[in-house]
Nucleic acid binder design. Structure first.
Lengths: 189, 189
DNA sequence: GGGCAACGAGAACGATCGTTCTCTACGGTA
DNA sequence: TACCGTAGAGAACGATCGTTCTCGTTGCCC
């Protein structure tokens, strides 16, 4: 087992444990036990728990956005692509072990300012820019992207805290209505 | 200083510290120091930290919903009352020390199932029922209350994590558009 | 005024945290 | 085969946590 594989095993173990139980509730010893990587090696891969937490969040960000984008890319119609975001959320919410947004959850654990708060913000900014791109393909008001972001984050909160599996459907219906409301009616005088 | 006043001082200190820094990051000694109530008395008021955390959240729930309702009650027009929710959010976001939803933040710190998760859920359920009441005064589709809830939680997340002070305005605009979209048009044939 | 119950201040306790150190075993090279 | 740098396993360390205990003092009732 070389350095990279050890680092990957540690990150996989940390990812599962941090997401399931929260960052502060998981000790480094639990990560060592789950990964099978001894302390000495573990600390050579990640010099501190804070480094590991940062990598955990950054990888979650990349993976989460890639999975969403891959799902959306199965559509070509611009309006369908926007609504596909919410279809994907519905699938995500239904996954076993779903426990909300890792970034929102971690943000709650650490005061601001903190590196965790910065990464959470970067994640939401990246999502916002992705939505900008989706919306730019439509003849709609620029406000729509921001409103979609609100619906997404609201749905994640509802699905995790209220355990409401229909949150994605509700958000999708609202997004659909807003899509119509924000569309410039070219038939207007 | 009698029992009730000591309990109140402890709860006030815990409220400020828990909200600002997160629950797990605040030790009981910090609460003792900030409240001026010695350990022996503190533990007679709240038998454990978990009890104190539960009281902190339950009081936050009551106070938050009362403040919102008081603001809304300054209006009489049903539609204005719905939109006033978002005006109040805007004021809340602008308060110094605003750091998001205490229930969402605490939910992230503790795994589910937990008493904290239960209280967070109760809080969101209560908000949902309040919105049901506001919407019931309007000739609108029943879906609107759920969609308003998504916008509210989304706005809180945006305002706290992205530090977006306009989140309340965006949510209000979206709510206004949805209000129109969900209104049964009595003039239709 | 004397005895007693309750109090405040803070030390103490056991547990657990993140991190480092020790010690033993081993593998490659002359 | 003798040597040496590195690895793994886990004890150890200092800090901090939630909680309890000690102890000197105070105030109240008879």
């Amino acid at each position: 087992m070389d350095h990279d594989e050890a680092a990957l095993r540690v990150l996989d173990a940390a990812d599962a444990l941090f997401y399931e139980r929260g960052v502060q509730a998981v000790g480094m010893d639990a990560i060592r036990a789950a990964s099978g990587v001894p302390f000495k090696r573990l600390y050579r891969c990640y010099p501190s728990k804070e480094h590991l937490v940062a990598e955990y969040l950054r990888r979650r960000d990349r993976r989460w956005r890639r999975r969403m984008a891959d799902f959306v890319d199965e559509r070509t119609d611009p309006a369908e692509r926007v609504l596909a975001v919410f279809d994907w959320l519905g699938r995500w919410f239904a996954e076993p072990g779903f426990r909300g947004c890792a970034f929102v959850n971690s943000f709650g654990e650490f005061g601001t300012p903190s590196v965790v708060a910065d990464i959470a913000r970067e994640h939401k900014d990246a999502l916002r820019h992705y939505l900008d791109g989706l919306v730019a393909c439509l003849p709609v008001d620029a406000r729509l992207a921001e409103e979609l972001l609100l619906l997404i984050d609201g749905a994640i909160v509802s699905a995790s805290i209220m355990r409401n599996p229909n949150a994605a459907d509700s958000a999708r219906a609202a997004a659909s209505a807003l899509l119509v409301a924000r569309t410039a009616r070219s038939t207007a005088p």
